[in-house]
């Protein structure tokens, strides 16, 4: 049970002079329950890749298998696929349209053809999961703040009970507190339900502290694939692609260079804090 991309390529506007290769020969295996971070510069093919995963786009060549079945086979049920592989787009404004929040969240499950009771239950459950206050349930989604809209959009997909949950820049345009809340929520959901999560992000700090595995895209190619620690070690390669490791990795590395005995593989603020305090403690002990 997993998501497999086998030699997948994708080009826009095939057959015209505007032809553009967006993805070149991508091979990825994503096992169930993994929290994957997808990073890359603007135009690196991240958005194209995630749209291939739920069948919104068809690969120009190569195959994508979900649970052992080719999702682009002509007899594959694409509607079920879209409920199993849920995709939350970057801008909630693109999907909110109903007169109130609750109805809007009901929209997804209703499209799956479930009966009304089940639809309502799922919507309620999803809104609870994203921790939206009950006061907002019957308000217009357009009156909400950015962070709340994001929650409603996430709930709208969650209500379809996806097994693979893909989020495109879920923290874009949110303040630090709002973005941390959203990410913690996603992390908890992943832990509780055991679903696979693919997080597309520009923010290395976010990726470092939440994901199990990082995929780095550049110019339509998959350049790196590994644990956050492994990927963020290669700062030079990252900077050639216009990316940076989390700020804190540069700090611990500088400290190490200056002869301060810290563990320079720290990639999150809390890890860095721990190793710096540890080193200080030993230094004081030795004196």
């Amino acid at each position: 049970m997993s998501l497999i991309l086998d030699h997948v390529s994708y080009s826009y506007d095939v057959g015209t002079s505007y032809k553009q290769e967006a993805l070149k020969d991508i091979n990825i295996v994503i096992p169930d329950g993994q929290f994957v971070g997808l990073i890359g510069h603007t135009g690196s093919g991240k958005s194209t890749l995630i749209q291939l995963l739920n069948g919104l786009l068809k690969p120009t060549s190569g195959n994508i298998y979900y649970n052992g079945q080719d999702i682009n086979d002509s007899d594959y049920d694409r509607k079920t696929l879209r409920s199993k592989v849920g995709l939350v787009f970057q801008y909630p404004e693109h999907q909110l349209f109903e007169e109130n929040v609750f109805k809007d969240v009901c929209f997804g499950p209703k499209n799956l053809g479930l009966d009304e009771k089940e639809v309502n239950l799922r919507a309620y459950d999803a809104l609870e999961k994203v921790k939206l206050s009950h006061d907002y349930f019957y308000q217009s989604p357009f009156d909400l703040s950015g962070g709340q809209k994001r929650r409603v959009a996430i709930a709208g997909i969650l209500a379809m009970k996806p097994e693979v949950f893909i989020l495109d820049e879920p923290t874009a345009g949110l303040d630090p507190k709002g973005s941390e809340e959203i990410l913690t929520l996603i992390k908890n959901l992943q832990k509780d339900t055991g679903m696979t999560v693919i997080l597309v992000s520009h923010n290395m700090e976010d990726v470092a502290s939440y994901v199990d595995r990082i995929l780095v895209m550049n110019k339509g190619e998959l350049k790196m694939d590994g644990s956050p620690k492994d990927v963020f070690k290669k700062t030079e390669e990252l900077s050639n692609m216009g990316l940076r490791a989390p700020e804190v990795t540069y700090i611990v590395r500088e400290l190490r260079k200056k002869g301060f005995p810290v563990d320079d593989s720290a990639i999150t603020v809390s890890e860095a804090k721990e190793t710096i305090l540890n080193a200080l403690y030993h230094k004081i002990l030795n004196e």
Partner: peptide, 10 residues
């Protein structure tokens, strides 16, 4: 984009 977002919702 809106079309895709709504298609993702079935």
């Amino acid at each position: 984009k809106i079309m895709k977002a709504q298609m993702a919702r079935g």
